[in-house]
Structure formats: C-alpha cells, structure tokens
C-alpha cells in the first residue's frame, strides 16, 4: 500500500501531462472544426505538400542516423577500450555538450555557418571562396548529427563495456583474426546498444523542427515544421494533431519492426 502511494505523484504527473494531452491529440486528430468525426486530418499526409515534408524529414533523419552510427561506433570502441581514469575524462568530454542548452548549441552552429558567419569570415580572410552551407539540407544534417551524436555513442559504449574481454579472447583463441572476432562476436553482441542508439537518434531527428528552422531557414520544411506551424501560426489544431498521429504511428511501427528482427537475430545468429 505504501509503495503504491509513493508512485502517486508520478501517476498524477503522467495523467496530467502525458495521458490527457495524448487523448486531446487523438480527439483533435479525428474531428473537424465542428467536432464531427473525420479521417481527413490523417489523410492530409497524402497531399504533395505534406508528404514532401514527411519524406524530406525521413531522408534527412535517416542520413543523420547513419552518419551518427559510423561516427559513434569507432568512438564507443575507443572509449570502451580505455581503462581507468582517462576513460571517464574522455567520456565526460562527450557528455559535456549535452549539458549545454540544445537551442544555444544550434544557434552557435548558425553563427558559425552563416553567409557572413565565423567560418566564412575566416575563409574570406584567407582569400578562399565562401561556403554556402546555411539553409541547405546539409546544414540540417550537420545540426542533427552534432546534437544527437552522444545519444548514439552512449548506448553503444554501454554494451561494449559489458562484453567480457575473455569472450573476445576466446574468439581469437579459436582461430579468429581481429576482423573476424569483431564481425562474429563484438558486433552481434552490441546489437541491443545499436538499436537503442538508432532509436534515440532517429526519433528526435525525425520530429525536430528547431534544427530545421534555425539551420534550414524557411526554405526547407520538414514534417516537424509543418506540424509546428499548424499549431502556432495557422491555428489548425485538428490538422496538426492528425499529422502528429501519423508521425507517431510511423515511429511505433518502426520500433516494433526492429524489436521483432532483433528477437529473430537472437535465436538464429550469424
């Protein structure tokens, strides 16, 4: 009884700020202005304007996730192989930026990349041609990778740290060279970390509107921007909610797929 009481504040919190808002999103998503049931807000994803923003968001967030993975894996391996005091110091260096405000970090990149920004000033000073990075998909990907990289590094680092070094020694002992030991033992054993890393990067990247607004100008609309505009500018909560539901379903669908393939990978491994 006492233990149940302890969870009361959390239950109250989640009811107030998670369950009720979610119900409201569903209510708005499936009704029109007069409160009548409709699927048009959901189907609105099919309009060229919306589907373009949706696929652009999927494309850029997938690209960012892939880049994050290839940057994070070697980094996590290096971190996991460092022993003692140095490892915690270097891990701290990677966590440190996460303690800084997300908006500030993104605005800093804007200052760096702007047409008259820091990078172009230096290039101009050296007599080199200016770079045109800001307001391109590239700038958005850069912002996503920069902001979300730690979320890929940490879960992979965690699983790699848990792998018993003798399991790798056993692979070497049984005749595997370093590359074979990596592909047949390290990589499969780190799959859970990879999956949570991908989820933790892909989901926020897919739904972001801050990075695309600050680094993409108004030129590139992602699905996150469209939804944000429906709520803050157009004032059409019904359409905004409908598109949110589509996005939410897409993410849940992907997570279920990855959970299923992960389980299969467990039983018939490489």
């Amino acid at each position: 009884m006492n233990k149940k009481l302890l969870s009361a504040p959390f239950l109250f919190w989640s009811a107030l700020f998670i369950i009720i808002p979610l119900c409201m999103v569903f209510y708005y998503g499936f009704t029109d202005k007069d409160g009548a049931f409709t699927l048009s807000n959901i189907m609105a994803i099919a309009t060229p304007e919306h589907s373009k923003a949706f696929f652009e968001a999927v494309k850029l967030s997938l690209l960012s996730t892939v880049i994050c993975f290839f940057l994070a894996y070697p980094l996590a391996m290096i971190l996991a192989n460092l022993k003692g005091k140095r490892s915690s110091l270097i891990a701290l260096i990677f966590i440190l930026p996460m303690w800084m405000n997300f908006l500030l970090r993104t605005l800093a990149w804007q200052t760096l990349l702007e047409k008259t920004g820091v990078i172009n000033s230096i290039l101009g000073f050296l007599g080199l041609p200016a770079l045109n990075i800001i307001n391109t998909p590239g700038a958005i990907v850069l912002g996503m990778v920069y902001n979300f990289l730690p979320f890929m590094v940490l879960p992979i680092y965690n699983v790699l740290c848990k792998i018993d070094v003798n399991v790798l020694n056993a692979a070497r002992d049984l005749g595997a060279n370093e590359a074979q030991a990596f592909l047949k033992v390290t990589l499969p054993l780190s799959v859970p970390g990879i999956i949570s890393g991908i989820t933790m990067v892909f989901v926020p990247a897919l739904t972001t509107f801050v990075i695309s607004t600050i680094l993409g100008g108004s030129k590139i609309l992602l699905i996150g921007n469209v939804i944000e505009q429906e709520f803050t500018q157009t004032g059409n909560w019904h359409l905004g909610s409908g598109l949110s539901i589509v996005l939410m379903m897409f993410i849940i669908f992907n997570m279920v797929i990855s959970a299923i393939t992960d389980k299969e990978g467990d039983t018939n491994a490489l």
């Binding site: 018993d164 003798n166 020694n169 056993a170 002992d173 054993l189 467990d266 491994a269």
Partner: peptide, 14 residues
Amino acid sequence: NTVFQKYALFTHMS
C-alpha cells in the same frame, strides 16, 4: 586452446 575462467561462451550463439 584455452578454457577461460568464466566460460566466456558466445551468448548470442547456440
């Protein structure tokens, strides 16, 4: 070949 202290089996394989 070596037999390790805590078995060091590959837990992701049968």
